[in-house]
């Protein structure tokens, strides 16, 4: 393998390492940003339902008595195609109003249990996530600030996952293209930059093999230095060959 190619391989290795890290880092940031945007969009809807429900609670109605809630939930599910389900549960986990189809692994009961833990703030939103859907659980508070139930919204992560996949593939394409270009550029530039060294050694090789005649050497590269010194070595080889020949002749005469 040529010297320039060997060195270029290592150069490309460093570039590949840095590109990999950069791609990973930016992709991770994109994922979290994308998730944040999606989540906040659905949180706006869930909070709107919460406002409506809490207005009723403040008037002294129970969640069961708020017949209009079902209609609101249905309208929201119809308007926003990504929403899988919108439900209102009471404190015991009983499903009071439902729009859409609740995912199998909705995690509502464990979510409710977590929301009811004393260490949680009464108004904290809980985020649920599994491979197919994201969920938000927002507690409903009565006029005394006590939890009276929960609004739970599940939305499909298929569209979001597809977007992430698309962007990841694009990033991989950019990374590979940059790596390929860097590879070509590294090979060309290293070849060009090391031409003095490689040509010097190639000439030195030809000189040793007797395919080229010695010429005065000027320059500061390693091959030039060796070539300058090879002139002395060459002379020594010549002298040695003469001695060997002399010995051969002497032995032949015997």
């Amino acid at each position: 393998m040529r010297l320039s190619v060997k060195i270029a391989v290592y150069m490309v290795g460093i570039i590949a390492f840095a590109l990999l890290l950069l791609t990973y880092l930016t992709n991770a940031k994109f994922r979290s940003l994308q998730e944040e945007v999606e989540q906040s969009r659905f949180l706006v809807l869930a909070l709107d339902v919460k406002t409506t429900a809490e207005r009723g609670l403040a008037l002294g109605l129970t969640l069961e008595q708020m017949d209009n809630l079902g209609g609101i939930l249905h309208r929201l599910v119809e308007t926003h195609g990504d929403i899988l389900s919108l439900v209102i549960l009471d404190q015991q986990g009983e499903l009071l109003h439902l729009a859409g189809a609740l995912p199998d692994d909705s995690g509502l009961s464990s979510g409710l249990e977590r929301l009811q833990r004393p260490e949680r703030g009464g108004d904290d939103t809980l985020v649920l996530s599994n491979s197919r859907s994201f969920g938000l659980m927002v507690p409903l508070l009565n006029a005394f600030g006590q939890q009276a139930g929960v609004v739970a919204l599940h939305y499909d992560r298929a569209a979001s996952s597809a977007l992430v996949r698309q962007v990841t593939l694009e990033q991989l394409r950019f990374g590979l293209a940059a790596l390929l270009l860097s590879c070509v550029a590294a090979l060309l530039l290293t070849g060009w930059y090391l031409r003095g060294v490689t040509q010097g050694f190639a000439r030195l090789t030809r000189l040793v093999e007797g395919r080229e005649r010695q010429a005065p050497v000027v320059g500061g590269l390693p091959a030039d230095d060796l070539e300058r010194r090879f002139q002395v070595v060459h002379q020594q080889v010549g002298e040695l060959e003469a001695k060997v020949e002399k010995a051969e002749n002497a032995l032949a005469r015997r």
């Binding site: 994109f30 990033q171 550029a185 930059y193």
Partner: peptide, 22 residues
């Protein structure tokens, strides 16, 4: 110096294109 030039160009290029994509 050559490696750093290539590195900076590659990273800047990928960062810019990724940003556009995002």
């Amino acid at each position: 110096v050559l490696t750093l030039a290539l590195l900076t160009a590659a990273l800047s290029g990928v960062a810019y294109l990724s940003l556009q994509s995002f």
